[in-house]
Simulated assay, not measured.
Amino acid sequence: MSASLATVSYIGATILFILSLGGLSNQETSRRGNLYGMVGMALAVAATVFGPQVTAVGIPWIVGAMVVGGAIGLYAARTVQMTQMPELVALMHSMVGMAAVLVGYATFVDPEASKNLDSAAHAIHAVEIYVGIFIGAVTFSGSVVAFGKLSGRVGGKPLLLPGRHWLNLAGLIAVVYFGRLFLQAETPQDGMVPLFVMSAIALLFGIHMVMAIGGADMPVVVSMLNSYSG
């Protein structure tokens, strides 16, 4: 598959994902929304596996990961009760967030990802990586807490820390500061420290944000985190 065809496939998958979210907003269209999501994901996976970025050596690893992940998903879908669906969705969203973090780190250390980019394009590329990792880390930790509250493993009472808004503001300022250091890094080694610090702050931010919300509102929180990951 050529690079142009892979790009078109990714755009098509994105459109299908948007249609999927729209369909899932209503019970009458939820089946159609799920179908759009499955077709979109199949299209995105096919574009990745058969695209120019994956060699023949990497295909067995991808197929093996798909088999393991598919088996786990099939088992969960068959054994989890309908009343446990919200917590299952929260757990799956946490995996989406972690995947975004790992993809961001992998893209950052891949020399081919930013090859032949001019200074402006390189800056945009770095910002995308930084913001993507931040949102992915928030989604991961927040979804784990939401799963804990929905499953009863974490208390449903809101945890309101003194000066919590100032804590959030301080964390946001720190993220911006380390983002500046990240953009100024000349090598991947120099950029790793601010990236690691930002990731830790983002994980704490996700925990703090969801812990401050009551357990009854967790389905709404899961939907919000889903929009973040999207």
Rank of each mutant, 00 (worst) to 15 (best):
M92C: 09
M85F: 11
P111G: 03
L43W: 08
S223G: 13
V176K: 00
V68M: 06
V89R: 14
I124G: 02
F182N: 00
P60D: 03
T187Q: 09
L225N: 02
A76M: 14
M224F: 06
V138R: 07
G179K: 00
V63N: 03
L172C: 06
S20L: 06
M218N: 03
V68S: 03
G215F: 04
Q189C: 00
I11Y: 13
I129N: 00
F134Q: 07
T79Y: 10
L167F: 09
M211T: 03
I11P: 11
A6H: 12
P188H: 01
V154Y: 09
V57Q: 10
M211I: 02
E128R: 05
M95P: 05
H125K: 01
R164T: 05
V144E: 14
G152R: 06
E112V: 11
G214S: 09
G69K: 01
W61I: 02
L160A: 06
Y228W: 10
Q53A: 12
L161V: 00
G136A: 01
L169E: 12
I135L: 04
G179A: 02
A56I: 07
P60C: 00
N226D: 15
Q81K: 13
G179W: 03
R78D: 12
V39W: 09
R31V: 06
G73I: 06
L102S: 05
T29F: 07
L5P: 04
P158A: 08
N26Y: 14
L181F: 01
M41H: 04
V80H: 12
Y177F: 05
L160Y: 05
E186R: 01
G64K: 01
G23A: 09
V109I: 15
N26V: 06
P52N: 12
L161C: 03
L91T: 13
V103F: 14
S9H: 10
V144W: 10
I11M: 12
V8D: 11
A47F: 02
S143R: 05
G163L: 05
A106Y: 11
I207S: 08
A202T: 03
N168G: 13
M209W: 13
F17Y: 10
G214L: 09
Y105K: 06
T48P: 03
D217Q: 15
L181H: 03
V197N: 08
M211C: 04
A106K: 14
G156P: 06
Y105Q: 12
S114I: 10
Y75P: 07
I135V: 04
G179L: 01
V67R: 00
A56P: 02
G12N: 15
T139C: 10
G97H: 09
A99Y: 15
L181A: 02
V175E: 13
A216W: 14
T107S: 14
E128S: 07
K149P: 01
L24P: 07
V221Q: 04
R32V: 05
L167E: 14
M41Y: 08
L204T: 08
W166Y: 11
V145R: 02
R31Q: 11
G12R: 15
A56L: 13
V57P: 02
V109P: 11
H93L: 15
A120L: 11
S229W: 15
M38V: 11
I15A: 11
T139V: 13
V109C: 09
F205P: 02
M85Q: 15
W166C: 09
V220H: 04
V175S: 05
A202L: 09
G104Q: 12
S30K: 05
A200C: 07
G58I: 01
I207F: 11
F108R: 08
G206N: 02
V45P: 05
T83I: 12
V176I: 01
A99L: 15
T79G: 04
